[in-house]
Simulated assay, not measured.
Amino acid sequence: MFMNTTSIELRVRGFHLDGYGHVNHARYLEFLEEGRWDYFDRHAGLMGVLSRGDVAFVVVNLNIDYRTAAVAGDDLEVRTHLADLGSRSARMSQQITRKHDGAMVARAVLTFVLLDVANNKAASIEGELREALEPLLVS
């Protein structure tokens, strides 16, 4: 695993399942979001800038490739890393794998922009925030 990739583990519970007995597609959004929150928690430099409230990351696109079903009792690992950093947007890459056999359950690429909260417009990723993000890039 890359140094700037974070990883969380979670167990599939009964309330995650749909009528077919596997994880409902919408639950994967929650699993991925949990991975991103953990990623930002572990990188204090990012949270310091974002906690001031004048800028925020806003998701503008999310593509999920569902590969295999996860079922109750499966232990999953969600890995997250920063894959690309542009002037106004960035992309995160995430993978969900099943622990016992390493099967790829889902993978996702999420694009976010930096929002200037006061003006409700995309802002340039520069200065302190860019300095915090650049070392986290994984190619």
Rank of each mutant, 00 (worst) to 15 (best):
F2G: 06
F2H: 15
F2W: 11
F2N: 15
M3L: 07
N4F: 10
N4V: 05
T6L: 05
T6E: 00
S7F: 05
S7L: 10
L10W: 12
V12M: 08
V12S: 07
R13T: 07
G14N: 03
G14E: 01
L17E: 01
L17R: 07
D18R: 05
D18M: 06
G19I: 05
Y20L: 02
Y20H: 02
G21V: 03
H22L: 07
H22W: 02
V23C: 01
V23W: 03
N24H: 13
H25D: 10
H25W: 07
H25Q: 12
A26V: 14
Y28C: 03
Y28P: 00
Y28T: 01
L29M: 11
L29A: 12
L29N: 10
E30T: 13
F31E: 04
L32I: 13
E33F: 10
E33C: 06
E34S: 12
E34V: 08
E34N: 07
G35Y: 08
D38H: 15
Y39I: 06
F40Y: 02
F40C: 03
D41C: 09
D41F: 07
H43Q: 14
H43N: 14
A44N: 03
A44C: 00
G45P: 08
L46F: 04
L46T: 03
L46C: 06
L46R: 03
V49C: 08
V49W: 08
L50E: 02
S51R: 15
R52G: 11
D54I: 02
A56R: 12
F57P: 06
V58L: 03
V59T: 13
V60P: 06
V60I: 14
L62D: 04
N63V: 14
I64L: 14
I64D: 13
D65H: 15
D65Q: 15
Y66R: 13
R67G: 06
R67Y: 00
A70Y: 12
V71P: 05
V71L: 06
V71T: 12
V71I: 11
G73N: 12
D74K: 14
D74N: 15
L76H: 13
L76N: 15
L76D: 14
E77R: 15
R79F: 01
R79P: 01
A83K: 11
L85A: 00
G86D: 02
S87C: 00
R88N: 02
A90C: 13
R91K: 10
R91I: 04
M92W: 10
M92K: 06
S93F: 11
Q94M: 15
Q94A: 09
R98H: 14
K99N: 09
K99T: 13
M104T: 14
M104E: 15
A108Y: 13
V109H: 00
T111A: 11
F112T: 14
L115H: 05
L115G: 05
L115A: 04
L115T: 05
D116C: 08
V117A: 04
V117D: 03
N119G: 14
N119Y: 10
N119R: 15
N120M: 07
A123F: 09
A123Q: 07
S124G: 02
S124D: 04
I125P: 02
G127E: 08
L129N: 11
R130K: 08
R130Y: 05
E131Y: 01
A132L: 04
L133S: 02
E134I: 04
E134S: 09
P135M: 04
L136N: 04
L136R: 03
L137W: 11
S139C: 00
